[in-house]
């Protein structure tokens, strides 16, 4: 297996609310800390990736948010502008008037154009070899397949034209498992687990992109071993603890019970996930981070945990 961070391009996806941005930010930070010149790109311009680095809003132009780590957010219109000027050397920029309106129309009317400008930009960054690693905080599970298959779809729909010429190298890089991989983030809960299993199948059947790893986020710590659990049950059922403390321990007992029950129901989903995925696919576990808010500190914690999982 190729080492995860030795690839050049990692798409991070997952069902909404599972911590996709946390993982993308942590992977990028981990790579940068290991000396790789890293770009992290957020596909959703309204996302909150910047919060994870406490760096102020990200824009289309990459900005250094930590040593060796640059962050940007996708803007298909900017991507089109860059593409027209850099690659087509289109000289009539000044005369075509408000590009925004034309873009809006072309992107709305022509299927796949928005997708290709989005995916195309990050693959372009890889092709130009400006970075050791590009991590993409990509779209949620519902949209990612559509985005990744856009180059092929365009290939079938468009016979000639500038976009057509671009799709070949796009597909080349996307389909190369040495350079490109996809990471699915899940939590050990029913719906995210099911979506992860479905997405893994769809990726295999419909796209050329290699599934590199599944990250299971918010794994609760195991509170008690078997012997300890017996002791806990004994203490929870008796008055000894209250007597010794001369206070009410009930909330603490309930809190422990909550943690144990949650972990148990999650363990079932986790088993189901492990059994349903290819056995050689790496599963990385990220503990539940009991933190006040997401920021650089929690991103560092997540990066350290992922590093430990990857054996660094």
């Amino acid at each position: 297996m190729t080492d995860l961070l030795d690839r050049k391009l990692l798409f991070v996806t997952g069902k909404g609310g599972v911590g996709k941005s946390t993982v993308a930010a942590a992977l990028a930070l981990l790579a940068a800390e290991r000396g790789k010149r890293t770009l992290v790109c957020e596909f959703d311009a309204k996302g909150n990736l910047a919060d994870f680095f406490e760096s102020g809003p990200t824009r289309f132009q990459p900005r250094e948010v930590a040593a060796g780590l640059f962050a940007m957010s996708m803007d298909p219109e900017e991507s089109l502008k860059e593409y027209l000027t850099l690659q087509l050397r289109l000289p009539l920029m000044a005369r075509i008037g408000p590009l925004a309106r034309i873009f809006e129309f072309v992107a709305t009317a022509a299927p796949g154009v928005r997708e290709i400008l989005t995916v195309g930009k990050v693959v372009w960054e890889v092709r130009e070899a400006r970075w050791d690693l590009v991590v993409v905080d990509a779209s949620a599970t519902g949209h990612i397949v559509g985005q990744l298959t856009a180059p092929q779809a365009i290939n079938e729909l468009v016979q000639v034209g500038a976009i057509r010429q671009q799709t070949d190298w796009l597909v080349d890089i996307l389909s190369d498992p040495v350079r490109t991989g996809l990471v699915i983030v899940a939590t050990p809960e029913e719906m995210p687990v099911n979506e992860t299993i479905e997405l893994a199948e769809r990726l295999e059947n419909e796209t050329v992109v290699d599934l590199a790893a599944v990250v299971v986020n918010r794994v609760l710590p195991e509170l008690f071993g078997r012997a300890e659990e017996e002791v806990f049950d004994r203490l929870a059922g008796g008055a000894e603890l209250n007597d010794a403390l001369a206070a009410d321990a009930a909330p603490i007992v309930e809190g422990a019970r909550l943690a144990v029950t949650l972990r148990r129901s999650r363990a079932e989903h986790l088993d189901h996930l492990r059994d349903s995925l290819p056995s050689d696919l790496p599963l990385l576990y990220l503990p539940y981070l009991f933190v006040r808010s997401h920021g650089m500190r929690s991103t560092r914690q997540a990066a350290a945990a992922l590093g430990a999982e990857l054996g660094y």
Partner: peptide, 11 residues
């Protein structure tokens, strides 16, 4: 001209 360059006239 722009649309044509990007999409190709057939498309």
């Amino acid at each position: 001209q722009v649309a044509d360059r990007i999409l190709g006239s057939q498309f």
